[in-house]
Design a protein around this nucleic acid. Sequence first.
DNA 1: CGAATTAGTGGGGAATTACCAACGATTGGT
DNA 2: ACCAATCGTTGGTAATTCCCCACTAATTCG
Lengths: 142, 142
Amino acid sequence: METLLGMTTFVLHKVGVAGRREIAERLAVRPGITLWQFAALAELADQGPSAQSTLAGGLGLDPSDMVRLMDELLHDELVSRERDPDDRRRYRIALTGLGRRTFTTARTVVQKVENSTLSPLTATERAQLLKLAAKVHAGLSQ
Amino acid sequence: METLLGMTTFVLHKVGVAGRREIAERLAVRPGITLWQFAALAELADQGPSAQSTLAGGLGLDPSDMVRLMDELLHDELVSRERDPDDRRRYRIALTGLGRRTFTTARTVVQKVENSTLSPLTATERAQLLKLAAKVHAGLSQ
DNA sequence: CGAATTAGTGGGGAATTACCAACGATTGGT
DNA sequence: ACCAATCGTTGGTAATTCCCCACTAATTCG
């Protein structure tokens, strides 16, 4: 009995989707950005100025979709876009001051939501869950 | 650094989606059913003959979408559909023999895929992961 | 130089998910 | 008998995800 709830993938998917949805809703309210925008800002904050294709690769997003995402971020002045002097095919996408502040705000919002959705777990259990999920995640790409 | 990979929800979502996708592809090949069809068969196998609205509730699916899902399963003769004598608004959806055999096949396929995606984990780690995910999942609905 | 490759762009499209409103048939409550 | 609620059905819609192709500009390689 309870076939579906006994399948890890199924439960993981449900939890992931619900969490993601919750986060997306909060982010839309407070810093007023989408999940994809948040992901791009996070990559830029982590790795510094990057080319669009690098970002697209890191996020697993199609290059053509990345163009449209960058258009949004540029319009909101969260990133700047210059040609890379070393290779003028590339752009050099960088966070603006506003982008960095927005990201900081967004990150605390996300962590607040996560603390809420993970509230059934103790601190050690949360660490365990992240560790195990990361292990599985690492095995995906290879 | 690695902001996104440090967020449990994000990793959970990625793993869940990838696993789900893998399972869907395998199920399409071997017993030739979709994920939703599998989910419905599983519910029926667990709980016996049910009304459509009960199934819809259990799977978190809109009643109108459940109608279309049932149409598919009926067309493939995996389930039977009669009016419930006790309440003739309801249907009594039940697995056919073929439906039961298909479900059994599908279940082993799914477990094979799961064993593969969870291969980076030991047996105890897999149990841990399921336990923790289930705990979070249980906290979602309340 | 000429050919092949890469970065970004524009314009799509197919499939999925998740809804919603309105309706007929049936039932339960009063 | 009447009204409200429930079950299933039909016919949508909006958003998202994921993908593809053709094209320009710039670079690299032979």
